[in-house]
Amino acid sequence: MKHTLAVLVENRPGVLVRVAGLFSRRGFNIESLTVGRTENHDISRMTIEVDGDDRLIEQVTKQLHKLIDVIKISDITREEYVDRDLVMIKVNAEPGQRVEILQMAAIFRARVVDLGRKTMTLECTGNEGKINAFEESLRPYGIRELVRTGKVAMLRGSRFAGVSSGGKNDNNGE
């Protein structure tokens, strides 16, 4: 099962390599990883997707906790959360096909961000399922290039995975 971890880390050089290195040397597979600054400039937030059973995820979490630069880890998989992924797709678009592609884009609320002589570049935001569907719908035209940001996620409502909702020391191995 895919798990989504929200990981708060010190905003310092080398943190990403510490986290990524941990995954590779312990044999854990990262499905996706995104990182960026938070409301606090000293803290970055990673959204990491990992595939594995509960025991593996527990190991991942505990090993991440051991990194001094990791401040807090929340496994939000089973919580109510919103997640977004952004994709940019450069698709073949002969002048005759453009209207059709634009209609498709409208359905997915995607936007045209660039236009070439024979291509269009579209941007679409949404959860993984929507992005996958969008990609599939454009495939028949011929996708020239595709780039995805990977998933970012946030808990719904007033619950939050931020620093002030409890320290790192909440893990008792239980």
Binding site: Q59, K62, Q63, H65, K66, N171, N172, G173
Partner: peptide, 17 residues
């Protein structure tokens, strides 16, 4: 003292950090 050691190699019935 290290939570990551608990359950790493064997299934533990009663863990205590």
């Amino acid at each position: 003292i290290d939570p990551a050691e608990i359950g790493k190699n064997v299934i533990t019935h009663v863990p205590l950090v």
